[in-house]
């Protein structure tokens, strides 16, 4: 009798059910820091850029968003020759691992950004980021970018951790048409409704926010207040 039990136990242990690891998280790729040295040349070590105005930080951005961008660069939908050349001989599996690696890094905070903000501008920035401005028909940033402005889903990037100059440059780019996305280009519409002071205020306030990892129960983003072509 005990023998039979033992045999059953053995059977169970040998079954694929027992062999399956408990968590679906794949093990980290060994030596990823060194493998990614090519990216660090522009995006900084661990994806924390030192020259944010030209090369954005990629640390802590959503894995799905980063993966989409890599696909876009490789396909030439998002135009950047250097990125396209780098990605051409790489598999989508590796690109997915790269995206996960950078999503798992903590974004750097640049404390100097907080100091330079005057209280009136900070208040205006906070209002735009958290509540929007109904008179200008501008929704709150957090309605799309998530309550913690940490982004969500495959398409909406987080904003915390970005540098003030970079955010301001992107908003300016959307306003002037230098940066564009699939129509309807909601970021362009929003940027066109903001004044230069508004852009500086909201960029300054966001850049001053502490960077924390995504909270355990942080919800995915709900229905968007505007129609965005980039969000499928």
């Amino acid at each position: 009798m005990p023998c039979r039990l033992l045999a059953l136990l053995c059977l169970f242990l040998a079954s694929p059910l027992a062999a399956q690891p408990a968590s679906p998280v794949s093990p980290p790729i060994p030596d990823m820091d060194n493998r990614m040295a090519a990216c660090a040349g522009c995006h900084g070590e661990y994806g924390r850029s030192q020259r944010e105005t030209y090369y954005p930080s990629i640390a802590g951005k959503p894995a799905g968003y980063l993966y989409e961008q890599l696909l876009n660069f490789r396909a030439g939908r998002r135009h950047q020759t250097q990125m396209q050349q780098m990605l051409t001989p790489l598999s989508t599996d590796y690109m997915r691992e790269m995206a996960a690696y950078y999503a798992g890094q903590t974004a750097a905070r640049h404390p100097s950004d907080a100091d330079a903000l005057d209280p009136a501008a900070a208040a205006r920035g906070e209002q735009l980021a958290l509540h929007g401005d109904a008179a200008l028909d501008v929704p709150a940033c957090r309605d799309c970018h998530g309550a913690g402005l940490r982004g969500g889903g495959p398409y909406v990037p987080g904003l915390v951790g970005l540098r003030r100059e970079y955010i301001e440059a992107q908003l300016g780019g959307w306003q002037s048409g230098a940066r564009s996305a699939l129509a309807p280009d909601c970021m362009a519409t929003i940027a066109q409704r903001l004044s230069g002071e508004d852009m500086a205020a909201v960029a300054g306030w966001i850049a001053a926010q502490p960077v924390q990892p995504k909270a355990a129960g942080e919800t995915e983003i709900g229905p968007l207040p505007m129609n965005c072509g980039a969000v499928r």
Binding site: R35, M36, A37, A38, A40, G41, C42, S91, Y94, E97
Partner: peptide, 10 residues
């Protein structure tokens, strides 16, 4: 599957 890379110097 996971080649190492070299940074661009341009």
């Amino acid at each position: 599957p996971r080649p190492y890379g070299m940074p661009p110097y341009a």
